[in-house]
Design a protein around this nucleic acid. Structure first.
Length: 868
DNA sequence: AATAGGACTTGCCGGAAGCAGC
DNA sequence: GCTGCTTCCGGCAAGTCCTATT
């Protein structure tokens, strides 16, 4: 059992719930400490408690989860080493004592098949009784306490509380869950007419979560909670421009410039005045972002009505007596502008002004001659350009890939012409160009700081005008305004098109999307013109061109992640994931029931959903032959999943970006049997889920919850877990850094060195106690004669140093292939982190870097009491 | 229902910038 | 100030999922 990992969860949960405790970094002592958390939750949000922390029968519904094995594999850490309570996303800035055992790759598993026959029978019985078809853990209590395999993901990660939760504390919650769950039809046919989504919304009408929605969904966050979590009443924008806080205190920082009204647009001016009028009328709308207030059209209202359908019914707020407290006052990021759901009919904006895109500079020939059969060859500028693209890749692993070279040669040959002297890549020697490239790189490196700065300044000046767009009167950063330069396509994994020439994109390739009344951006290349100008306000892209590698695909220019538009959809994403929380019990109950369905499609859907929920698998769309051969859930092949009796599934496949997913998971017996059946009479390369594709799966999920798709499970599970483990769950990996082993060796050497010093110090101490002088050091030099106290101090310092280094080493090893950043950016609801920071007076800047602060501006004014 | 087209999010990587230890 | 490491950040590939069309 991974005491460390679990305790961390528990402490975190404690902290999140306990808003009244003073700012103390607790140490998670041990699993013996009962879960004292959630007093508040217990009082007001029973379901939440059991879902997130405990193991009520309902949450036991969470099938044995493979991730648990990650937890199990995590190393145990003596409590003395346990780091202080960390923020959900503690960054190294705050945490100088990294923890062991927080990250283990999902590879091999020391799984212990703990689902006994008896348990299985019990489980079956319960299902028959209809008591709670969700349950998976009906095995004897002791066993289930010892093995975490059958705990819900979230509960297992909160294992510190699991024992506790299996006891009385959770009973209330259990009862309510049973009650609600029992509403789920027992017979498949009995209520087919009832929309599934309404059946499954088990929590929507009761408990704290409904309460939560009733407040936060109806009213913008800022309105309910000011900077300090207090109700905000007197917050009037001083001007029409309500800039986001993020930049309001950094006016000089261009990189953080924030939405500003564009004074140049008469169109906007008109809008502004209407906004002003509105604001005077309605103080209550202070929280509405400028862009939204500007619109406030019937369209918007219509959409918000649509959105409402997806939100929970309003129920009265009972308590949740969060004291508005003590949020760091000096944090610049304590609040943000409000973001509203996108307006209706697919309309994304009303006015849009921008300057188009910037093109890479034309190619400058270097004139360095490559060799063919040992002799220098003359190349035209165009030929040389492509040769250089290849030359600079010498030394990369692409050079070992025949496909890369073949594709390159095919495309280069077209430019060389049929009768060119260069006929075969084998006789080409690109080293002269490669060497030139290296020397250029070196030159650049050798530039003085001044020169570098000047260069940067110049670039900035050229690009400044492309960096910003004005969307509905608000100045927003553009994400990727630079047109992709030509190059060789670097597909990942065994991509069939790797090495192909990605030709230069011309203005005539580019379609511009811009407001009707906005000036059309000048084409920056003289004599040329844009392919097309559109005024489509149902999309968010500013420009696109066809991907030269795959012409049926597009490359888009969008606003930056920090923009209101992106923030808005980000928020919607998390809201959807939160909504899933209220349906998840029902959904799990439904798929569990269908594991044994006679309808083969139903059966496959249920097993696939189970895997997506449990393992955070991606949906798995069909892929063309001209893409890398990777799979997701719906496209898993027979060879990717090996059933190992009695109930283990061994997964081994290449997922997104050709990242290998290897995992052994203990699953429910019914799932195990279903997988065996699906594989039956099929070949290695055949689809396991032959009756299924992502659209069928998602169509089914939508019946269970409005807007539900496969990927929501990833957001849901990551956010609800909000733990260091999430990077592992989602299999976000990075390649081991090239210098990793060297770094490890260095660390080991340093540790050894320190250990030698420690030994010497101990010898010296013993001698000093006897009044003898210290021995000569290992370097032969004589040492100062220190008294025993001083020596003891040195010993403890050195010991501490060694311990820290050991910890660093372990963390480095554990995290070498784990990309936590991806989770942080895409899956963890930032409001969880912001709320945590508010409760603990931790400046949010310690957790989120500049980019994330900008991206998550919409989340900054969350209540300290926010729970996912 | 299947397929194609289109729009958007997710995710890895590598270079630049920043920072700590010497 | 230098070195070596970490973090940031942009680039762009590779996913998901929706809608329109056949």
């Amino acid at each position: 059992m991974a005491v460390e990992a679990c305790n961390k969860q528990k402490v975190m949960a404690d902290d999140m719930d306990d808003d009244d405790v003073p700012l103390v970094f607790k140490r998670s002592s041990s699993s013996s400490k009962p879960n004292q958390s959630n007093s508040e939750i217990k009082k007001s949000v029973p379901q939440k408690h059991d879902q997130q922390l405990g193991r009520s029968p309902a949450s036991n519904a969470r099938p044995p989860n493979g991730q648990n094995n990650f937890v199990q594999r995590s190393k145990m850490v003596p409590s003395s080493r346990t780091p202080p309570d960390r923020s959900p996303l503690m960054s190294p800035k705050l945490s100088s004592s990294p923890t062991k055992g927080l990250a283990v790759k999902p590879t091999m598993v020391d799984s212990k098949p703990s689902t006994s026959k008896a348990a299985e029978l019990n489980s079956d019985k319960r299902q028959i009784k209809g008591e709670n078809s969700l349950n998976v853990s009906s095995r004897p209590k002791e066993e289930s306490e010892d093995s975490e395999d059958d705990k819900p993901l979230s509960a297992r990660l909160h294992a510190g509380g699991s024992k506790f939760n299996s006891g009385n504390a959770n009973k209330g919650a259990n009862v309510s869950n049973f009650g609600q769950t029992s509403k789920i039809p027992k017979s498949e046919d009995s209520d087919d007419e009832i929309p599934l989504s309404s059946k499954f919304r088990v929590k929507a009408v009761a408990g704290g979560s409904a309460k939560r929605f009733s407040t936060s969904d109806k009213k913008p966050l800022l309105a309910e909670c000011g900077q300090n979590g207090s109700a905000s009443t007197d917050r009037k924008p001083s001007a029409v421009l309500k800039k986001r806080n993020v930049d309001s205190e950094k006016p000089t920082d261009t990189s953080l410039k924030r939405p500003k009204l564009c004074e140049t647009s008469t169109l906007h001016k008109n809008k502004e005045s209407s906004v002003k009028a509105e604001m005077e009328e309605e103080d209550e709308e202070d929280h509405i972002p400028i862009s939204q207030r500007i619109k406030k059209t019937a369209v918007a209202e219509k959409k918000s009505a649509q959105v409402k359908k997806f939100t929970k019914p309003t129920t009265p707020i009972t308590k949740f007596n969060q004291k508005p407290k003590k949020f760091i006052k000096n944090s610049k990021y304590s609040e943000s502008s409000k973001v509203h759901p996108s307006s209706g009919d697919g309309q994304k904006w009303t006015t849009l002004v921008h300057n188009g895109v910037i093109f890479p500079p034309p190619y400058k020939p270097h004139g360095v001659k490559m060799l063919y059969k040992g002799k220098p060859v003359d190349l035209t500028s165009e030929q040389e350009e492509v040769a250089t693209m290849f030359a600079v890749m010498l030394g990369t692993e692409y050079m070992d890939k025949p496909k890369f070279k073949e594709n390159f040669m095919d495309d280069w040959r077209k430019i060389l012409g049929k009768n060119h002297i260069i006929q075969s890549l084998e006789h080409c020697d690109f080293t002269p160009i490669y060497d030139w490239h290296l020397s250029e790189k070196e030159k650049k490196k050798q530039m003085t700081t001044e020169e570098k700065k000047a260069l940067k300044e110049e670039k900035l000046q050229q690009e400044e005008k492309y960096m910003w767009a004005i969307l509905d009167g608000v100045k927003e950063k553009v994400g990727n305004f630079r047109v992709e330069p030509p190059g060789l396509f670097r597909g990942r994994g065994e991509h069939p098109k790797m090495g192909k020439l990605k030709r230069r994109i011309q203005p005539s390739d580019i379609t511009i999307n811009i407001g009707k009344d906005a000036p059309i951006p000048l084409c920056p290349i003289p004599g040329q013109s844009w392919k097309e100008i559109r005024h489509d306000n149902t999309v968010t892209w500013l420009a696109f061109w066809n991907d030269p590698i795959n012409p049926k695909e597009f490359k888009y220019v969008f606003l930056a992640a920090s923009s209101t538009l992106k923030g808005q959809s980000d928020k919607e994403k998390y809201e959807k994931a939160r909504l899933l929380k209220d349906y998840i019990q029902g959904i799990r109950a439904a798929y569990t029931k269908d594991f044994t369905s006679k309808d083969p499609t139903k059966k496959q859907i249920s097993v696939a959903t189970y895997l997506i929920d449990k393992l955070a698998l991606r949906a798995g769309n069909e892929k063309d032959d001209d893409e890398a051969d990777t799979v997701g859930c719906c496209t898993l092949k027979v060879e990717n999943v090996e059933p190992v009796p009695p109930n283990i599934l061994k997964f081994d496949f290449l997922g997104k970006d050709s990242i290998r997913y290897q995992n052994e998971v203990e699953v429910e017996v019914a799932v195990f049997r279903a997988i065996q059946e699906f594989r039956n009479k099929k070949k290695d390369g055949d689809d396991i889920f032959d009756k299924l594709d992502t659209s069928k799966l998602n169509a089914h999920l939508k019946e269970l919850m409005p807007g539900l798709t496969a990927k929501v499970f990833r957001t849901y599970n990551a956010s609800i877990t909000l733990d260091d483990m999430v990077a592992i769950i989602c299999n976000h990996q990075r390649t081991v850094s090239k210098s990793h082993s060297a770094q490890m060796t260095r660390l080991n050497e340093k540790i050894d060195e320190l250990k030698n010093i420690l030994e010497e110090l101990r010898t010296d101490l013993a001698r000093a106690k006897k009044g003898k002088p210290p021995l000569k050091g290992s370097d032969g030099k004589s040492k100062r004669n220190l008294n025993p106290d001083a020596l003891e101090k040195k010993i403890s310092q050195t010991t501490a140093k060694i311990e820290k280094m050991e910890r660093d080493k372990d963390t480095k090893e554990d995290l070498k292939t784990v990309a936590l950043g991806t989770s942080k950016i895409n899956y963890l609801d930032p409001r969880i982190t912001v709320a945590w920071c508010k409760r603990h007076e931790v400046p949010i800047e310690k957790i989120f870097n500049k980019s994330l602060l900008a991206k998550f501006a919409w989340a900054m004014d969350v209540k300290p009491s926010f729970r996912f």
